[in-house]
Design a protein around this nucleic acid. Structure first.
Length: 455
DNA sequence: TCTGGGGTCCTAGGACCC
DNA sequence: TCTGGGGTCCTAGGACCC
């Protein structure tokens, strides 16, 4: 389970000071000068500092305030993500040209499985030549960006190797030399070992990987927990057989914002959360996703961070549904004292809703689905989301407009929209289905005016 | 005016079911 | 009357990554 490949066939590529480098590429006057990309406001932090700025002690995640104190003459830029995305796409294309197994970790980092690259062999000279060629091609297609690359027999070692000769460097770890490379290094080089873990290990007298290797698995689990304990036990021995996985699925979509001054106005908070919910919904739809769990995040004036979530019976990508639930969750929190950050997210993502809907989108789509598996979800009156949970749901159905008049209107998410009017004390009205782009959908109204008032 | 934004993964407790 | 497990789902919080 923890075997290591016999060859150095995992490549990790990391673009150097990526955001800052793109800025220097596009604006020649910035070349050779300190450049800091990140939040430029009073509560901003540094995202990327160019190597010229790093010489002044500016680092990622440092507050921009502190960066300005250390390097007042740097150029402070808020970032142009379209340019970064485009440069990143060009780099990933180069990597995919080399091997079908490319796993991007972020805009500026990826693993490549060289075992699928069609090389004549995987000996060190061969993979070294390929790595140099990749670095040259990245430089070419990005108009001059440099990348640092590590090649080794596992993801773990490849990632560590790419860090060893930054910037613009290449390290190929000869199979069999992994432990010799690893043992003298500080435990903080291990991905997943952050400040909290470093401190726990330090108290146990562990600073280097060599010292980590002397701790028993039971002791490690006691120190840092089950999952991380087992992981560290193996990584300290350079044991890592994790595969390179392309196309990892998105698990959540969220939007958050930190405000220059703390928010105290509940109505303003409500408006912000509503806007954020709309943005989350837009991005869900844009990616063909929907999710069941809506979460909010609230960071108070003193930096304590609260989260609340609520899970719907069926996935949604509807802005009104997400917004209403988010506002309900917010209502239950004490925000007196001020709020510095608000956020909205959706998780429990389901791409299967598409197939379900289209499978059910034949002749009598949602009606059939509703009859098959009606679920009466009567929630406690004060429970988050109770207002639209307290009606009849069928899996795969979504709210398109809720609380229209005295009842509810139901609809399905992607491609086909199903609408029906019902109230707590009347039977459901007729079900009608529209294609999402059908203009008749917008014109559809609940038949409440035509119906006699039912009791 | 210390401390961004977008994510992933893990833990722990309670509800609920068998 | 007291005493059981395990598995899954949900929620809240925290560590970590780039």
């Amino acid at each position: 389970m923890t075997a290591v490949r016999a060859h150095a066939s995992v490549l990790h590529l990391d673009l150097d000071a990526f955001f800052a480098a793109v800025e220097q590429r596009d604006k020649p006057s910035l070349r050779g000068k300190p450049v800091v990309v990140g939040g430029t406001g009073g509560r901003g932090v540094v995202s990327t500092a160019s190597y010229e700025a790093r010489a002044y002690g500016v680092r990622s995640a440092m507050s921009t305030r502190e960066a300005r104190a250390r390097c007042p003459h740097a150029a402070y830029l808020s970032g142009r993500f379209e340019a970064y995305r485009s440069a990143s796409a060009a780099v990933m294309a180069v990597l995919r040209d080399c091997s079908p197994l490319v796993e991007p970790l972020s805009l500026d980092e990826a693993f490549v499985d060289l075992a699928e690259a069609g090389l004549p062999d995987l000996e060190v000279p061969t993979v070294t030549a390929l790595a140099e060629e990749l670095r040259a091609r990245v430089h070419e297609v990005t108009g001059g960006l440099t990348a640092s690359v590590g090649v080794a027999s596992s993801k773990f070692l490849a990632k560590i190797a790419s860090d060893l000769r930054k910037p613009d460097g290449l390290v190929v770890v000869e199979p069999g030399t992994e432990l010799a490379l690893l043992r003298p290094l500080h435990v903080s080089v291990i991905p997943g070992v952050g400040p909290a873990t470093v401190e726990r290990l330090r108290r146990a007298g562990v600073h280097t990987v060599a010292e980590l290797e002397r701790i028993s698995q039971e002791e490690l689990v006691r120190l840092v927990g089950k999952a991380q304990g087992h992981s560290l036990f193996h990584l300290a021995r350079a044991e890592d057989d994790r595969p390179v996985v392309p196309d990892r699925e998105t698990k959540s979509v969220s939007v958050e914002g930190t405000y220059e001054t703390d928010l105290t106005d509940r109505q303003q908070m409500s408006a912000i959360v509503t806007r954020q919910a709309g943005e989350v919904a837009r991005r869900l739809k844009g990616n063909g996703l929907s999710g069941r769990t809506v979460s909010i995040k609230v960071r108070l004036y003193d930096f304590t961070t609260l989260s609340r979530s609520s899970t719907l019976p069926a996935p949604t990508d509807d802005p009104a549904t997400i917004a209403r639930l988010a506002r309900t969750l917010l209502e239950d929190l004490d925000t007196s004292g001020g709020v510095r950050l608000l956020g909205v997210g959706v998780s429990g993502l389901a791409d299967w809703i598409q197939e379900d809907l289209f499978a059910a989108a034949g002749d009598e789509p949602a009606e059939e689905a509703a009859q098959e598996t009606p679920v009466d979800q009567r929630a406690e009156p004060d429970q988050a989301g109770a207002r639209w949970r307290s009606a009849t749901w069928a899996p795969g159905m979504d709210v398109v407009h809720a609380e229209h008049g005295r009842g509810w209107v139901w609809g399905s998410g992607r491609g086909v929209v199903t609408v029906r009017f019902e109230t707590a004390d009347t039977p459901p009205g007729p079900v009608r289905s529209f294609r999402a782009d059908d203009p008749d959908l917008e014109r559809w109204r609940p038949p409440e005016e035509e119906q006699p008032e039912a009791q």
